[in-house]
Amino acid sequence: MNYKGDRSFQGGEDLLFRHLLPDTPEVKRIKSLRGREYEYAEYIGIVEYSIARHFCETDRKIKDRDAVSALKNIRKNFNKDVAFFKPGLEREIVKNLVEILEEKPITHHELKLVIDYVLDVIENRAWMEDEQAYLKWVAYIMNLFTEEESEEYEKSIKKLAARLGLSRKHADLMLMKGEEEDYFEFVEEYGAESEGDDGDEGWGEGEEPDEEELIAEMERRFLSMEDSEKFDFLMENGPEFYEFVGLYISELAEKGEFGRIQELYSKLTAKYDDFLFLYVYMGATYLEIDPALAKSYFELALKALDNLDELSASTKERLRDNFLSLIKKIN
Rank of each mutant, 00 (worst) to 15 (best):
Ser167Lys: 03
Ile30Asn: 11
Lys303Met: 15
Leu119Met: 07
Asp130Met: 04
Leu319Asn: 07
Leu101Lys: 08
Asp210Gly: 12
Ala139Arg: 04
Lys72Arg: 14
Leu20Asn: 15
Asp274His: 12
Ala301Tyr: 14
Glu310Leu: 01
Ala253Cys: 04
Asn73His: 12
Phe186Leu: 03
Tyr153Trp: 05
Glu151Arg: 12
Leu278Trp: 09
Arg318Gln: 04
Ile249Thr: 11
Val98Trp: 04
Ser228Met: 02
Lys169Asn: 03
Lys316Val: 04
Lys155Tyr: 10
Ala139Ser: 14
Lys328Pro: 04
Gly35Lys: 15
Gly178Met: 01
Ala292Pro: 01
Glu243Met: 11
Glu129Asp: 03
Glu254Phe: 06
Arg320Asn: 13
Lys255Gln: 05
Leu144Met: 04
Glu154Lys: 08
Glu26Tyr: 12
Asp182Pro: 01
Lys316Phe: 06
Gly256Ile: 02
Phe258His: 03
Lys72Cys: 08
Glu236Thr: 06
Met142Gln: 00
Val280Ser: 07
Gly35His: 14
Asp120Pro: 02
Ser224Lys: 13
Val27Asp: 12
Glu189Phe: 09
Tyr272Val: 07
Tyr153Cys: 04
Ala171Asp: 01
Lys303Pro: 13
His170Trp: 10
Leu135Ser: 07
Ser50Asn: 10
Glu189Ala: 11
Ile44Phe: 10
Ile249Phe: 11
Ala292Glu: 12
Gly256Ala: 05
Glu217Ala: 08
Gln262Ile: 06
Met282Ser: 03
Leu302Pro: 10
Leu89Tyr: 05
Ala139His: 04
Asp6Thr: 03
Ser314Val: 07
Asn2Gln: 01
Asp210Met: 10
Leu135Pro: 07
Leu234Trp: 03
Tyr153His: 08
Leu160Arg: 11
Glu217Phe: 03
Gly35Ile: 15
Lys177Leu: 00
Tyr248Val: 06
Asp172Cys: 01
Glu243Ile: 09
Lys328Arg: 15
Glu185Met: 00
Tyr279Asn: 13
Ala270Thr: 08
Glu317Thr: 12
Lys31Gly: 11
Ile122Glu: 07
Leu71His: 04
Leu264Ile: 08
Val118Gln: 07
Tyr49Val: 02
Phe78Cys: 01
Ile141Ala: 00
Ser224Arg: 12
Lys295His: 09
Ile62Cys: 05
Glu90Cys: 09
Glu92Phe: 05
Asp197Lys: 05
Ala301Ile: 15
Met218Ala: 03
Lys230Ser: 05
Glu229Trp: 00
Gly5Leu: 05
Val245Ser: 06
Glu226Ser: 02
Glu208Asn: 08
Gly246Ile: 13
Glu102Asn: 09
Tyr190Ala: 05
Glu219Phe: 00
Ala192Asn: 07
Glu211Tyr: 11
Ser167Asn: 03
Glu236His: 07
Lys136Asn: 11
Ile30Trp: 13
